[in-house]
């Protein structure tokens, strides 16, 4: 599997990131078996820019991990690597026991990934698009009908089902993409800003949806909306300039700093920048 020994992962986490000052960096070796995602020393550069710098964390079943951080912090890059779209420069991660470097196809079968800009094929109808995703994921016959009957109402896209995707508004487009990521009922969900562009009601619905799905899945979401973190996330990681600054729970952070999550975020990311 991965080439990185566990001991090394631990030492870099504690030494390199220095999360001790701002939060508790949890090591979850005891729950290793129930971890659906385990990231080890993931690193990716784009030319001279280090987008993700040696991050390691584990996420278990039932957890909703919120990925927070300023723009350009490396959230999307990290998620793209977990979704096996970008290969990491070094380090690796295992999702449901499959390694993202050596076995990307098995990983992709087990995850649902919603990309940041909600990419879809503009010239296709919503129905055609969802059927294409079913084709690619080998969902056939009755199973396909059931899957479509399940995701179309929960993403409330019935009214646009036969429209071409280019005619949809941003919110509908995102919901269509969300439907395509949920269609195979994956164990692991990686959602890059899932509520971006939705109206307040839909935001609420999507958050409820994430909450209900959380019990038997493992979910990572990235967001800029801190209230969303409080509402849906059982744990949050603050990342800036490619490094994990804090790995804690939303309530834990608030208690530790005696202020709102907003302020905690500002405090942590600003101090770190000037440091």
């Amino acid at each position: 599997m991965s080439g990185c020994p566990k001991a090394k992962a631990g030492s870099i986490m504690e030494g390199g990131i220095g999360g001790g000052r701002f939060g508790r960096v949890q090591r979850r070796n005891d729950t290793m078996e129930s971890n659906m995602i385990s990231v080890k020393n993931l690193r990716r550069t784009f030319g001279p820019v280090v987008a993700v710098d040696d991050i390691s964390f584990d996420v278990g079943k039932g957890e909703v991990l919120g990925f927070l951080g300023p723009n350009g912090a490396g959230k999307s890059t990290a998620m793209k690597m977990l979704a096996c779209f970008l290969p990491p420069d070094s380090g690796t991660a295992a999702i449901c026991g499959h390694d993202i470097v050596t076995d990307p196809i098995s990983v992709r079968k087990n995850i649902g990934y919603l990309a940041e800009n909600a990419p879809a094929y503009n010239e296709m109808t919503v129905a055609g698009f969802l059927n294409f995703v079913c084709d690619a994921r080998r969902i056939k016959g009755i199973g396909r009908k059931k899957a479509l009957d399940r995701v179309v109402p929960i993403c409330s896209i019935e009214s646009v089902y036969h429209q071409t995707i280019e005619t949809l508004s941003k919110g509908y487009r995102r919901r269509v993409c969300l439907a395509s990521t949920l269609i195979h009922d994956p164990d692991v969900l990686i959602l890059d800003e899932p509520t971006d562009g939705l109206d307040p009601n839909q935001k609420h619905e999507v958050r409820q949806l994430i909450k209900t799905m959380a019990q038997d899945k493992c979910i990572i979401i990235s967001t800029h909306i801190l209230e969303e973190v409080e509402m849906v996330c059982s744990r949050c990681i603050i990342i800036a300039r490619g490094k994990i600054l804090v790995d804690s729970t939303p309530t834990g952070l608030k208690e530790e700093h005696h202020c709102s999550l907003d302020e905690v975020f500002r405090k942590i990311t600003r101090t770190r920048k000037s440091a």
Binding site: K80, A115, P119
Partner: peptide, 14 residues
Amino acid sequence: RTGSVELLFTLPIT
């Protein structure tokens, strides 16, 4: 250009 390549290569397609 449209980014749909990201969708394609996060589906189980080589």
